[in-house]
Design a binder for these strands. Structure first.
Lengths: 136, 136
DNA sequence: ATAATTGCAAATGCTTTGCTTGTGA
DNA sequence: TCACAAGCAAAGCATTTGCAATTAT
């Protein structure tokens, strides 16, 4: 259901347009991390007239509202996902581009510790693992 | 001394031009992580005619030769440093842009473990901490 | 000598923006 | 109604590239 994201929009005072509903719907049905172009392609199947500029604007709007999360993985194009309830990091298959989400509390704690050791409050972080499948 | 980098070029069969020597020299005297534009500015003081295209080409060449390391921190512009002998990660001050290098073996090990847990060989990783100074 | 490199400007790829028309609350 | 959003094309930015002139080996 996209009512999920639509609810969030109402809460945040984000005006609900047809296009925004579509971006929300398509993203909520995507299990992966599409870039804007891919997202636009998927949405175009439901509304062939939607402009990619609108997708760019919406995706940015949703990100600023905390509804989407943006990732700048290697590759040059920003990729998005619905903001997850619990934080996670990413393991990226360098051969297929497939993305695996993972959580590791030990690493999280160590990161915080490192920052504090240097007199910093950890505000954000980026952890990406790039690997290739071990064939057995 | 830039003879350091120049030696590496000879070893790798990279032809040494005036411009490349300058890129090497300026980078070896930079303690920070300049982007291409900043690097070009610094080099221009020694050779006011060097083209930014050449700096782009050289920086990429050196990266492919393993002489420089490229980082895509938040901010949109790639930043470079001389490839360090031992690997390190970065803690970035979100207010000043200052970068602190750190090494944490525990995190390194855990990353490898995570990748293996999912059946992957860890080939590369990106770990960036973003923080703000704790005032005391 | 001659294959590789430079400088310049034009081209690229992703993303943003100005402007006019359309639309949700 | 009317402030805000969409669509389109043009603009922006970082980076790359084609080509003629120059240079390192």
């Amino acid at each position: 259901m996209s009512s999920n994201i639509e609810k969030l929009c109402l809460e945040k005072g984000v005006r609900l347009t047809e296009q925004r509903k579509l971006v929300a719907k398509v993203m909520s049905e995507s299990g992966d991390h599409p870039d804007v172009d891919e997202l636009h392609k998927r949405i175009s199947k439901l509304d062939s007239k939607i402009s990619i500029a609108t997708v760019y604007r919406t995706v940015k709007l949703f990100e600023e509202a905390g509804i989407f999360s943006k990732h700048d993985f290697k590759g040059g194009k920003a990729r998005y996902e619905q903001s997850p309830k619990e934080h996670h990091d990413h393991l990226i298959d360098i051969n297929t581009g497939e993305i695996i989400e993972f959580v590791n509390e030990d690493i999280e704690k160590l990161q915080k510790k490192v920052a504090e050791k240097f007199g910093y409050k950890l505000v954000d972080h980026r952890l990406e693992l790039y690997g290739s499948k071990i064939k057995k």
